[in-house]
């Protein structure tokens, strides 16, 4: 279970997150929805320890990971698929995955599992990451995070700019992760994509978590979506 307990964070003097709280249960996909600048990506960065918290705490299975230095946070079992993928561009697919494997000393069987999820990466194994197509890069970014055998997975706009077949491939893997008991926290702009995969949706506004409701309820009543995301 991933728990964000009243976290505040920001860039310099600009405070972005204001005592934001949310929890993601194990085996649950929670989706953050909100307008640009609401603090979705900042929530991800703060959870990963890449932005210092000014208040609050992040707990993973009860352990307070926000006290750890940034490089120890992933080792506690947090996998991160950042916005824009941010692969190690000059490194090969194999090397990108190796860095993921090393973080929590995962063995070759983890690598084998991940490559079974994304067979395309096996074909591109010795190719440099920057030579991959956009969809393949997103697969690699996801695979790299899965190499940590994460307890919780953070995905920041994983389907941004991808063609439908790629979106489907990524979606399948995310659902599969849920089945194995991973807590998935996801940021997504496209509401239809959210509703097809999420269990619960939390709306973010001005760096605060507003309403949180089941995807089921949201599918029935679109009014809330209009209120928090509509233009």
């Amino acid at each position: 279970m991933l728990e964000l307990d009243g976290i505040s964070a920001g860039y310099g003097r600009a405070q972005v997150l204001r005592e934001l709280s949310l929890t993601v249960e194990t085996g649950e996909i929670l989706c953050l929805l909100g307008r640009n600048g609401a603090g979705k990506t900042t929530t991800m960065l703060a959870t990963m320890g890449l932005l210092p918290l000014t208040a609050g705490a992040v707990r993973l299975d009860g352990r307070e990971i926000s006290r750890l230095p940034a490089h120890m946070v992933p080792r506690a079992g947090l996998g991160y698929v950042p916005q824009g993928r941010r692969l190690f561009a000059d490194l090969t697919v194999a090397q990108n995955l190796e860095i993921g494997l090393r973080a929590r000393r995962s063995g070759p069987e983890t690598l084998e599992e991940v490559l079974t999820l994304f067979p395309r990466l096996r074909d591109r194994y010795q190719q440099r990451a920057q030579t991959l197509s956009g969809g393949e890069q997103q697969m690699l970014a996801t695979a790299r995070a899965l190499c940590l055998r994460p307890k919780a997975l953070l995905l920041d706009e994983p389907t941004e700019g991808l063609q439908p077949s790629m979106i489907e491939a990524i979606r399948r893997v995310i659902v599969q992760m849920r089945e194995t008991g991973v807590a998935v926290l996801m940021v997504e702009q496209r509401v239809d994509a959210v509703l097809s995969v999420a269990d619960r949706v939390t709306f973010i506004e001005n760096g605060q978590a507003r309403e949180s409701l089941s995807a089921e309820a949201l599918r029935r009543d679109h009014a809330l979506v209009e209120r928090y995301v509509g233009v």
Binding site: M48, L50, H71, R75, Y80, I99, R144
Partner: peptide
């Protein structure tokens, strides 16, 4: 070498290196 791989990863993206458990400091 592995330490070289870690150095190159840090060179390419410091934030991601941290997010994958590399002790950047």
């Amino acid at each position: 070498t592995r330490i070289g791989l870690v150095m190159r990863a840090t060179q390419m993206d410091r934030g991601m290196a941290l997010a994958f458990g590399i002790p950047v400091e």
